Amino acid sequence: MELGLLYSGGKDSTLAALLLDDFYDVTLVTAHFGVTDDWKHARDTAEATGFDFETVELDRDTAISAVERMVEDGYPRNGIQQVHLYALETVAGMRFDAVADGTRRDDRVPTVSRAQAQSLEDRYDIDYIVPLSGFGRGAVDRLVTANLDVESGPSDEIRKADYEAELRAILTDEHGTDAVDDVFPAHEQTYVTGFLTRG
């Protein structure tokens, strides 16, 4: 069965791909808005890990709407959630039998409720798979340490192909650099450069 995995090039989505690889024909799908070329980082990771890779360009109006929501809220959660659900729907509308993402059990954002998952499956006649839903951060970190070569650093330095980089760029264009600091808390990002033990 063909599965499209929403992919950023980070540790969670790469670990999700590993867990799904024995059961599905996994294609890593990076959704972007065409604002930056950060999607190329995900492509490079896909090449390094041997997975098929595609991109899908999302409607920029969704990004603009998400940024305005973040400015209004003063934090990124609802805007990122909005973009994630839109990206899942976009990938679900492609040719895949199943879609997946790298969300973990203890993620605060993005999340997909049971009702949202069921709606996605019913409307697109696909399966929605969340391979890390039973894994907490500690378990994910131990598996990543044992299997993946990872670079990490502050979110404004590590460039992977998640929504945040493009949303930051739009936020800067629309509201200035101070708005980015006001909306996004400092946190660490990861970028996978390959496998440690996989042949």
Rank of each mutant, 00 (worst) to 15 (best):
A117C: 08
G136R: 10
P131R: 00
S65Q: 11
L196C: 00
D125M: 10
P154H: 08
D73R: 09
G74P: 12
E57N: 05
L19H: 06
A16T: 01
V67T: 12
T90A: 14
A139K: 13
D21A: 15
L18C: 10
F184L: 07
D127M: 11
V109F: 10
D25W: 01
V56A: 12
S113D: 13
S113M: 05
K40P: 06
L143I: 06
T62M: 13
P131A: 07
M70I: 07
I170G: 02
V67Q: 03
G134F: 03
L171G: 13
L148M: 05
E166T: 09
E2G: 07
F135H: 12
G93I: 06
I80S: 01
D156K: 07
E47W: 06
R60P: 00
E151C: 00
D101M: 08
E174N: 04
T55F: 04
P110R: 04
L167C: 08
K40L: 13
D107W: 04
Y163V: 14
D107R: 02
S8E: 11
A42E: 09
L58A: 14
V67P: 03
T90S: 11
K160H: 15
L196S: 05
S13F: 03
L120A: 10
A117H: 10
T190W: 03
L6I: 13
E174I: 06
G10C: 07
Q189D: 13
H84F: 15
V35Q: 06
R43T: 00
D12I: 06
I126C: 10
D37V: 05
D127Y: 03
Y163C: 10
